[in-house]
Simulated scan of single mutants.
Amino acid sequence: MVMHQAVGIVMPLGRLPAHQARSVLTEVSQRADISPLRIAGLLTAWTSCGELNLGIRMALDEAIRSQRHATRPTGPAAD
């Protein structure tokens, strides 16, 4: 349940679809060396208390940028 909530937090935050929001959680987990479930718990707590560890916040921002970059078109649009 908490993982679904965390995905729901990341989606509008990063303007990402659900599958990329899940990838963000995985990437933050790897960068911070904390389990994905713990990251999800920290993110859901963040929505109510307004505090998130700076290292986690930085990892979250980087992971969101990484996922957004992954979706950018790399060439001219095909008709």
Rank of each mutant, 00 (worst) to 15 (best):
V2Y: 00
T44F: 01
T71M: 04
I56M: 04
Q20A: 14
S29Y: 00
L13M: 13
A78S: 15
T26Q: 00
S48Q: 12
Q67W: 12
P12W: 09
I56V: 13
L60C: 12
M58N: 12
A18D: 06
R65V: 14
T26W: 00
V7M: 04
S35M: 09
Q20K: 15
I56Q: 03
A59E: 11
V24F: 04
G14A: 06
L54M: 05
G41T: 07
E62R: 10
N53H: 11
A6Y: 09
A40P: 01
L16S: 06
G14D: 08
H4F: 02
D61W: 04
G8H: 07
A40T: 01
M11A: 15
M3I: 11
Q30V: 06
S48P: 00
G41R: 10
A63D: 11
L13E: 03
G14Q: 05
S48A: 10
I34R: 08
A77N: 02
A45K: 10
M58I: 13
Q30A: 06
I64N: 01
A32R: 12
S48I: 06
Q30S: 07
M1P: 08
R22P: 02
Q5T: 12
Q5M: 11
Q20E: 12
T47Y: 00
S66H: 15
M3F: 05
D79F: 12
T44W: 02
P12V: 05
H19R: 11
I56A: 03
R31C: 03
V7G: 01
R65L: 13
V24R: 00
A59R: 12
G41F: 01
G75W: 04
R31E: 07
G8R: 08
